[in-house]
């Protein structure tokens, strides 16, 4: 397989996954804010932090109000991580690898882009937001399903899954980092009552709530949520699962020594750390290490194959 093609399909998958994750993030935050009293002022700024976009955001906006943040995340083309930018990049990458994917999947990607472009303004109003975002999430899930069901599970498919998993790992760790930092700020009595709601929000942003319930059967608490999202290898958006997938995918590819070593190093670090027990500062440092590890894996993949 050509290096360029492998790289394009890898990035196509990353961008698609990024669009989906961003849509999830906005949806859940919107819902969460409706449930919280005004005194618990979380607002939209944490979302900007999740995306590590503080600096760029404040170059264009004075305050992190709802409209500005959503606009920035959905429709602003100067933000390379906005939904519309991600879908544009996914489509451009898909276009160049059209010949190795089933035709319908290109149609679907193109269709998702066109639809998002047409409807993304409506995300700015409360009433249509949910439907528009859900259609983006569903759109990407359809693509994922189509590719799983119709694309030959060859090397190209392996690069697709690697891109998707890396992006998922990235978003999962980002969400945990920012949410836990916010939640652990000196909790007053009044606010602690809402802590569960917020952890529930974290789970829901990853469609993890129901699965968590089935798995943990306990009332929601910080340690178990962290354990579930970081270590539960059977949940497809947890970091543990992502790393396990990456390891297995790489083992089937040639020249995998560099990237596999990096994945295994990170797996070991994750398993030894007992992250559920870490306090705020320590947890933040740990998540930082995980993010750096994911970046190193991406670098090794790029070095070996692209």
């Amino acid at each position: 397989m050509l290096s360029r093609v492998a790289s394009n399909i890898f990035w196509m998958a990353r961008y698609l996954e990024r669009a989906e994750n961003t849509a999830r993030l906005i949806n859940v935050n919107s819902h969460l804010l409706l449930d919280l009293p005004k005194s618990v002022k979380l607002g939209w700024e944490p979302i900007v932090d999740i995306l590590s976009a503080r600096e760029e955001f404040y170059q264009h906006y004075e305050q992190a109000d709802e409209r500005s943040v959503i606009k920035y995340m959905v429709t602003d083309t100067f933000n390379p991580g906005s939904i519309i930018s991600s879908l544009t990049a996914a489509r451009e990458n898909a276009r160049t690898v059209r010949e190795i994917m089933p035709r319908e999947s290109w149609e679907q990607i193109n269709g998702l882009y066109l639809e998002a472009k047409k409807h993304c303004q409506s995300v700015l109003t409360h009433r249509h937001r949910y439907d528009s975002l859900i259609s983006i999430i569903r759109g990407n899930q359809t693509i994922t399903g189509m590719l799983t069901g119709t694309m030959t599970h060859d090397e190209g498919y392996a690069f697709l899954r690697m891109g998707r998993n890396l992006e998922r790992g990235d978003m999962t760790t980002r969400i945990i980092d920012v949410r836990s930092a916010n939640l652990l700020r000196e909790v007053t009595h009044e606010q602690s009552a809402f802590e569960n709601i917020q952890w529930m929000g974290v789970l829901k942003s990853m469609s993890a709530y129901q699965m968590y319930r089935r798995e943990m059967r306990l009332r929601i608490n910080r340690a178990d949520v962290l354990k579930f999202l970081l270590l539960e290898a059977r949940f497809p958006r947890s970091l543990g699962h992502v790393l396990e997938q990456l390891q297995a995918l790489l083992m089937a590819l040639p020249r995998h020594d560099g990237p596999v070593e990096e994945v295994e190093r990170l797996q070991a670090q994750l398993n030894q750390a007992k992250p559920q027990a870490l306090k705020q500062e320590k947890l933040h440092d740990f998540i930082d290490d995980m993010q750096l590890g994911l970046i190193k894996i991406a670098e090794q993949i790029s070095k070996a194959y692209f």
């Binding site: 397989m1 050509l2 290096s3 360029r4 492998a6 010949e99 590819l253 040639p254 020249r255």
Partner: peptide, 30 residues
């Protein structure tokens, strides 16, 4: 046509010529 023939579709940057005047394409296997 590449798809129908089962051939690789390449761009100029995918190929290179070595010192022995042989053409190669850059693939994930080298």
């Amino acid at each position: 046509l590449a798809q129908q023939m089962g051939a690789e579709l390449v761009e100029g940057s995918d190929l290179f010529v070595d010192d022995n005047d042989v053409v190669y394409m850059r693939t994930i296997e080298g």
